[in-house]
Design a binder for these strands. Structure first.
Lengths: 118, 118
DNA sequence: CTCGTACCTGACGTTGACGTCAGGGTTGGC
DNA sequence: GCCAACCCTGACGTCAACGTCAGGTACGAG
């Protein structure tokens, strides 16, 4: 599959895919003419990269952890890093939950006030 | 209270406080000599700003919502925006939770493999 | 008055994940 | 062999929330 098709299928931009390759997150073979060629598994890979980015990991961290995330094999250092990142995500979830609660209360107050006004 | 003290107390940088003022998120009076002077309530305000930033809101959004978050009074447009942001946060929490679960499984696998190896 | 510390206003630098543009080569159906 | 659609490699632009530096002013203890 060529880059445009992978982009459309996985919902990321062509530029992003080239960026992933630049960062060694994604590999490709080349046609004799030099165009990128991806196997079908690339779609899952891109999805995984997006998930990790969405979780707030940097490309540097992702490139370190991708091997063990896809293979399940990790060095002790990788395991430490995995735990650090999981805990970071957990802390972030707590922050977001607090913020959500706060906004929720504001919404309730405002709604109550508006209803009272009616 | 002057800017340095507010910075130390609230745990943000002096530069950040000046940035908040530039973005109209935070006000200050001035001494005759032109130095910023903050009331005690500024600390809560800064904390609130940080919470909203941590929740992923932009300074533009924060400046729009700050009035109703601190006063509890909102126009319909502000209420819409509040709901949009709360839902965005909720969606983000879901993403993070999925990512955390994924990393958690990887950690389990790796740990199990290492234990088996011992 | 003087010195040290804190503060002031610009204004340019940083970082990450791409967007975008220029100039040119590749593919493949007809 | 022609043409549209697609792809290539640089390389500069973007955006937010500050960091940092330069050159100068204010405050307050002694």
């Amino acid at each position: 599959m060529r880059i445009g098709q992978l982009a459309r299928r996985s919902g990321v931009s062509v530029r992003a895919l080239r960026y992933y390759e630049e960062q060694r997150l994604l590999e490709s073979t080349r046609t004799p003419g030099g165009q990128r060629d991806y196997p079908d598994e690339a779609m899952e890979r891109v999805q995984l990269i997006q998930d990790l980015f969405a979780a707030g990991l940097s490309s540097r961290t992702v490139v370190e952890l991708l091997p063990c995330v896809s293979t399940g094999v990790a060095t002790p250092a990788m395991l430490d890093q995995l735990i650090i990142e999981r805990d970071r995500i957990a802390a972030r979830i707590q922050d977001l939950t607090r913020a959500k609660t706060k906004l929720g209360r504001v919404i309730e107050n405002v709604t109550a006030a508006n209803v009272a006004q009616d």
